[in-house]
Design a protein around this nucleic acid. Sequence first.
DNA 1: ACCTTATGCCTGTTACATCA
DNA 2: TTGATGTAACAGGCATAAGG
Length: 212
Amino acid sequence: MTTNMKPQTQTQADKQMVLLSQYYPGIYDQLIPEQVEVVKPRRRRKKIKADASGCGFRKRKLSDEQVSLLEQNFGDEHKLESERKDRIAAELGLDPRQVAVWFQNRRARWKSKKLEEEYSKLKTEHDSTVLEKCRLETEVLKLKEQLGEAQNGINRLVERLDGISSTSPSSSFSMEAMEPTFFDGFGMEGLENVFFVPENSYINGFDWLNNI
DNA sequence: ACCTTATGCCTGTTACATCA
DNA sequence: TTGATGTAACAGGCATAAGG
């Protein structure tokens, strides 16, 4: 529907133009089409420049007082019912259409700002999550390193115990046999109960470490 | 049920005002 | 003077309700 204008839209546009021409005589008059065009490309507004007398300079900026009251009403409710629109328009000496346009633009600005804030919030959350992920990855690497050292220590002990057991058949080895402070040397205090390894599989019990 | 009309909202655009 | 920015006004599309 880019080339055919709806009849009702045309009528509305004309009505608006007539209305505006009443509010700003000499400015919009020239824009009122003499005949209704059925087929039209997207209309471009004509540039309106001030002439020597200053006429043709359309009033655009709303006063601070008008904006203040509009903001106050917008704060109460973003939507605008017909009655409220008329009331505000009468109160501010504006055309209801102007009030409707102001609310539309204000909603658009509000939405845009809200999206910006949401983006900012999500970005902050994302950044801190990435930071936390890096921290955790570093911690995992450190723990892997510590576990590797622990495994080496155990292997050395096992080798020593194997040497002893070959001369003394009755001796055996189990995790319980370790001193409670065994892990302390590897900075793994409190992990004794975390890593359960069956007694009879202690030699290959750390294979799972490779899968971390 | 379907079509027309009116109305309101949304998104994107245009043009003017203002300021650095 | 000029480019950037803010904003009033607009265009066109869509949704919905009311009436014929």
